[in-house]
Amino acid sequence: MTTIRGTALRYVLTYVLARNGRMTVAELVAALSRLDFSVPGRPSKTVSDALRWEVGRGRVYPRGRGVYEPGEIPRGTEYRIEKRVEALREQARILNG
């Protein structure tokens, strides 16, 4: 597994939410694992902290305790996120064999 943090983590979480709709933090952590990514520290806290930034930008909306859904993402930002996530997944595939 490849450990991600910061902008990379935020982008992957936003990407997953945009593709899957409303998800809990536990579901997001599981989705990260399926994509061969891990996060440092306590996963639920790390994910929640990363999503706080995206909530502030309107790209993610909180819907109750530990539940998030996708918000409005400008097309240019969405394109940048998709390309970054694709590159991260390719890098993870190479590193994890």
Rank of each mutant, 00 (worst) to 15 (best):
E86H: 09
G6V: 10
K45W: 06
R57M: 11
V25E: 01
Y61H: 11
K83W: 05
G66Y: 00
R89E: 14
L35A: 04
R57P: 00
K45D: 08
P70F: 01
V85S: 02
S48I: 00
E86K: 11
I73G: 05
K83S: 06
K45C: 03
G76K: 04
R10V: 01
R22M: 05
G56T: 04
G58F: 06
P74D: 10
A8L: 04
G58D: 00
P40V: 14
P43E: 06
G76H: 07
Y61W: 05
G41S: 13
V12Q: 05
R5P: 12
P62E: 07
T46Y: 00
V16E: 08
E78M: 11
K45Y: 08
R34V: 02
E90N: 13
K83Q: 11
I4M: 06
A31E: 08
A30E: 13
S33T: 14
R34C: 06
F37P: 02
S38W: 06
I94M: 13
Y68S: 09
R59G: 00
L51V: 06
R89A: 11
R75K: 12
D49I: 00
Y11N: 04
Y61G: 02
R89D: 04
G66P: 00
V16R: 03
V12N: 02
T14H: 02
Y11T: 00
A87P: 08
D36N: 12
V39R: 09
R75Y: 07
L32C: 06
P40L: 15
S48G: 07
A92Y: 12
R84I: 07
S48K: 02
L9Q: 04
Y79H: 10
S38R: 15
R34I: 01
Y11A: 07
E82H: 00
R52W: 09
F37T: 04
L13P: 10
D36G: 07
V39G: 09
M1G: 13
R42Y: 13
G97I: 09
S38L: 13
G97P: 10
G64N: 04
K83V: 10
R34L: 08
P43G: 10
R57T: 07
L13H: 07
R42L: 14
R5S: 15
P40T: 14
V85T: 06
V12E: 10
M1D: 10
L17E: 09
L9P: 03
I73K: 01
W53F: 14
P40G: 15
R19K: 15
E90L: 15
E54Q: 08
L17M: 12
L9V: 04
Q91I: 14
I94W: 13
T77C: 11
A92S: 12
G41D: 11
E86P: 01
Y61M: 07
G71P: 02
G97C: 09
V67H: 04
V25M: 08
K83N: 03
A8E: 10
G41E: 13
L51C: 05
M1Q: 11
P40A: 15
R65G: 08
L9C: 03
Y61Q: 10
L13F: 03
S44A: 12
E82S: 01
V12D: 05
M1T: 12
E54W: 00
L13T: 08
Y61S: 07
Y79K: 09
E90Y: 14
E82Y: 00
R65E: 11
R42M: 09
L9E: 03
